[in-house]
Amino acid sequence: MLHIKCPHCGLRSQNEFAYGGDATVKRPELNKEVSDKEWDTFVYLRKSPRGKHLEFWHHISGCRQWFKVERDTVTHEIFKTLKPNEDN
């Protein structure tokens, strides 16, 4: 069971969290003209790397904050967790 450090609550067990997928996907701005390709890339395309993966988790049974986790998809090692507005 993963041990995830919520940036607000500290280390907690995985069963308090919900997974939120690829955190490198960036939603196109509202009201901005985007090409079909850009939009499809946002909605459907995922890099799904083998190794370091930046992803969202949601402390759903805790503070209910979304945050970013950098995790290895092979070893499941967690390198760091970040608030959504933090880059490192």
């Binding site: 997928g21 690829d22 459907y44 395309l45 995922r46 799904s48 083998r50």
Partner: peptide
């Protein structure tokens, strides 16, 4: 299971997660 890894070698991004 490894599609994304090979796709990356081809500079392709696919609607697939592992």
């Amino acid at each position: 299971g490894s599609t994304s890894v090979l796709a990356e070698m081809l500079n392709m991004t696919l609607p697939v997660e592992t």
